[in-house]
């Protein structure tokens, strides 16, 4: 087995808030191999976006990142200084965001925004960067790429802007693409196109992808492996097949029960829902963080649950 491209050990993100410390991400570990797609799935506020930003060292100023190690290729991101990190960002690792409407700078043409990272990292002349930009715009399915370069973001639709964002992330041919809810803000029909595009590009470029989403439909389409996050922890991880066919953690099961299945869910049938709310992440949480909402909870759940595993499948629960 080859070494993983990205290997996260004991990553935590703390945010000081009024009344204590919000432990947004709590000691998570995961790995991503070259050419593999890991989907991080969970509800709002479970720490999945914070995980993505922590990888890129783009956390808000107040948030503090701690990690035993953040191996990325030959580097440990946890020990790099700002300058070394800047050299990797946009070159070996790139990120696309949820909001294509605001993620592009309104004051510059998309050509300018596409070319600048390539020129910085590759020290490439302008015409080479321009050729690369045209090539990538065509690759993400934008017609008349040469003409588009002179346009401003406000002249493009949301779907087109997200395509531009993807092209921008790919300018330097990164090894890792971190996509934070890349389709959430788009129309459903555009969502499918963008996902297909990401999947195709990822295969073609043999790029690893960490895709953050709350949408299990997205996970089913693109994931090789899945990490389910709850209250800042990864509660279950496995291949997409394992997660969908034999979910072990009650939370994962609950999430899957919430999805209507065409042909199986009858009109008028009740959809699943998970009762209760996510616990506050301020301060220390002891025991299983899901126990308040869990149908299987017992006295033993007040202690930190063990991690069970079978092959590549692992879950943080007393149940086997």
């Amino acid at each position: 087995m080859s070494d993983p491209l990205l290997s996260v050990e004991g990553l935590s993100v703390d945010i000081p808030v009024a009344g204590g410390t919000l432990r947004a991400v709590r000691d998570i570990s995961f790995q991503v191999k070259r050419g593999e797609t890991l989907c991080v799935v969970g509800e709002s506020g479970c720490g999945k976006s914070m995980t993505a930003l922590a990888l890129m060292d783009l956390l808000p100023r107040r948030a503090k990142r701690r990690a035993q190690s953040l191996r990325f290729g030959k580097n440990d991101l946890a020990t790099l200084d700002a300058k070394q990190m800047n050299a990797l960002r946009g070159d070996r690792m790139a990120m696309i965001f949820q909001e294509p409407m605001t993620a592009l700078n309104p004051a510059y043409t998309i050509g300018n925004q596409l070319e600048e990272a390539y020129q910085r990292h590759r020290k490439a002349p302008a015409d080479e960067a321009r050729a690369r930009a045209v090539h990538l715009l065509e690759k993400v399915g934008i017609a008349n790429a040469g003409q588009r370069l002179g346009q401003y973001p406000h002249q493009l639709s949301g779907g087109l802007r997200q395509r531009v964002m993807i092209a921008m992330a790919l300018m330097c041919g990164p090894d890792l693409l971190v996509a934070d809810e890349p389709t959430t803000a788009l129309d459903v029909t555009i969502q499918a196109q963008i996902l297909l595009l990401l999947r195709q590009l990822q295969r073609e470029l043999d790029m690893a992808m960490v895709l953050i989403t709350h949408d299990l439909g997205v996970v089913a389409r693109v994931a090789d492996r899945v990490a389910v996050m709850y209250a800042g922890q990864i509660v279950e991880t496995g291949t997409a097949a394992e997660i969908f066919s034999s979910p072990r953690h009650p939370y994962t099961r609950g999430l899957l029960a919430c999805i209507p299945v065409p042909g199986k869910t009858k009109r008028g049938d009740e959809l699943g829902s998970i009762p209760g709310i996510v616990p506050s992440l301020v301060g220390t949480l002891v025991g299983c963080s899901f126990r308040e909402r869990c149908g299987f909870s017992a006295a033993i759940c007040a202690a930190d649950p063990p991690v069970h595993s079978a092959a590549s499948h692992a879950w943080r629960c007393v149940l086997r």
């Binding site: 783009l58 800047n86 946009g90 965001f97 993620a103 910085r120």
Partner: peptide, 14 residues
């Protein structure tokens, strides 16, 4: 703003 985060994500100099 989001686009400043994008610029940082591209590894541009401060």
């Amino acid at each position: 703003a989001d686009f400043v985060r994008t610029a940082r994500a591209k590894g541009l100099s401060p």
